[in-house]
C-alpha cells in the first residue's frame, strides 16, 4: 500500500514543476499588486507589454535558433545597425516601404551569414555569433559614428514605434503579429517540426532526407530578422538611431527569456508560446521592481537570482 500512496505526491510535485513559470508569475503579480496597487492599472499593464515588445520580438524569433541547439549573440548590434540603415534611407527620401525593407534586409543578411557559417563550415554558434557581434558593432560605428541621429518629421515612420491604434501602442500589434506567426510556424508547419527534429538529432534529420543545413541557415536569418525589426521599432519609438543601441546584455535578456520559457539550451524541445511566458515573466519582474523603486543594482542581482531559481525548478521537471 505504501508504494501506491508514495506515487501520488511525486506526480503532484511534477505537475507543479511543469507549470512553475506560470505559477511563479502569478505569485509575483500578487506580491507586486499588494505592495503597489498601481501595478495592476490598465496603463501599467499596457506599459509592460510595450516595454517587452522589443525583447519579445527578438526572443520569439530566436527560439528556433535555440531549439536547434544554437544561440545568436549578435542581436544587439543588429538592432543598432538596422536602425541606422533605416535612418539613412529616410534621409535619402526613399518610400517608407523601402526604408523598412532595407532595415529588415540588413538583419536577414547578417543572420543568413551567421547561419551559412554555422551550418556549412560547422563552426560553433556561440563563437560565430560572438564574432558577428563584434563585426556588426564595428560596422555600425563606422556607419553611424558616435553621434545620435535624430529622426524628425517622419510621421509615418514614427508611427511604427510611437503611434497607437484603437488605444494601444502600435508596436504591441507588431509584437502580437510576430508572436502569432512564429507560434503558427512552430506548431503547424513542417518547418517547426523540422526545427525540433534538428535540435533533437541533427544527423538523424539529415539521414531522413532533410536539408538540415539550409534549415539551420534559415533559423539564423529569422533571428536576424527579429533583431532588425526590433531595431526599426526602437529607432522609431525614440526618434533616434545610434550605433550603440542594443548594448551588451541585450542578447542575454533575449536568451534568458527563451530559456525561462523552457526551451532547452541544448536544443530539441521548445516552444515559442512558452518563450512569450518567459518574456512577460522578465517584463513583470522589471516593471514591478521599478514601481517599487528597487535600486538598479539590486534589480540586476534579483533578476539574476530569479532566473537561476526558475531554471532550477524547471530542471527538476525532467
Amino acid at each position: 500500500m505504501s508504494t501506491i500512496n508514495g506515487t501520488r505526491s511525486p506526480q503532484i510535485a511534477q505537475r507543479v514543476a511543469a507549470n512553475a513559470l506560470p505559477l511563479a508569475m502569478a505569485a509575483i503579480v500578487v506580491v507586486f499588486a499588494i505592495a503597489q496597487p498601481a501595478f495592476l492599472t490598465p496603463d501599467n499593464l499596457i506599459g509592460i507589454v510595450r516595454q517587452v515588445a522589443l525583447i519579445g520580438i527578438m526572443a520569439t524569433c530566436m527560439t528556433f535558433v535555440i531549439m536547434t541547439g544554437g544561440v545568436d549573440l549578435s542581436v544587439g548590434p543588429v538592432l543598432a545597425i538596422a536602425g541606422l540603415v533605416s535612418f539613412y534611407c529616410l534621409q535619402a527620401d526613399l518610400p517608407l516601404a523601402v526604408v523598412i525593407l532595407a532595415g529588415l534586409a540588413v538583419g536577414v543578411l547578417i543572420g543568413t551569414f551567421n547561419g551559412l557559417v554555422i551550418a556549412f563550415l560547422q563552426l560553433p554558434p556561440i563563437i560565430v555569433t560572438l564574432a558577428t557581434l563584434s563585426i556588426v558593432r564595428g560596422s555600425a560605428l563606422i556607419l553611424g559614428g558616435p553621434e545620435q541621429h535624430l529622426i524628425r518629421n517622419e510621421p509615418a515612420y514614427s508611427f511604427i514605434g510611437a503611434g497607437s491604434l484603437f488605444g494601444l501602442p502600435f508596436s504591441i500589434y507588431i509584437f502580437a503579429l510576430v508572436a502569432a506567426v512564429m507560434i503558427f510556424v512552430q506548431r503547424r508547419t513542417p518547418l517547426g517540426l523540422l526545427v525540433t527534429a534538428i535540435g533533437d538529432n541533427e544527423r538523424a534529420a539529415h539521414l531522413s532526407g532533410h536539408r538540415t543545413r539550409i534549415t539551420k541557415t534559415l533559423v539564423y536569418a529569422i533571428s536576424g530578422f527579429g533583431a532588425a525589426l526590433a531595431g526599426i521599432i526602437q529607432s522609431s519609438q525614440v526618434h533616434t538611431a545610434l550605433a550603440t543601441y542594443g548594448p551588451f546584455g541585450t542578447e542575454l535578456d533575449v536568451i534568458a527569456a527563451v530559456v525561462l520559457g523552457g526551451t532547452s539550451i541544448m536544443g530539441g524541445n521548445g516552444s515559442v508560446a512558452r518563450t512569450l511566458l518567459g518574456v512577460f515573466f522578465l517584463g513583470i519582474v522589471n516593471n514591478g521592481m521599478n514601481i517599487l523603486n528597487v535600486p538598479i543594482d539590486i534589480q540586476l542581482i534579483a533578476k539574476g537570482a530569479i532566473i537561476v531559481i526558475a531554471l532550477a525548478i524547471a530542471a527538476r521537471r525532467s
Binding site: 517540426l193 525540433t196 527534429a197 533533437d200 538529432n201 544527423r203 538523424a204 534529420a205 539521414l207 530539441g268 524541445n269
Partner: peptide, 12 residues
C-alpha cells in the same frame, strides 16, 4: 545517434 529523435513522439 543517427536514427531517432528520442525526445519526439513515435508519430513524429
Amino acid at each position: 545517434r543517427e536514427g531517432l529523435m528520442l525526445d519526439m513522439t513515435m508519430t513524429e
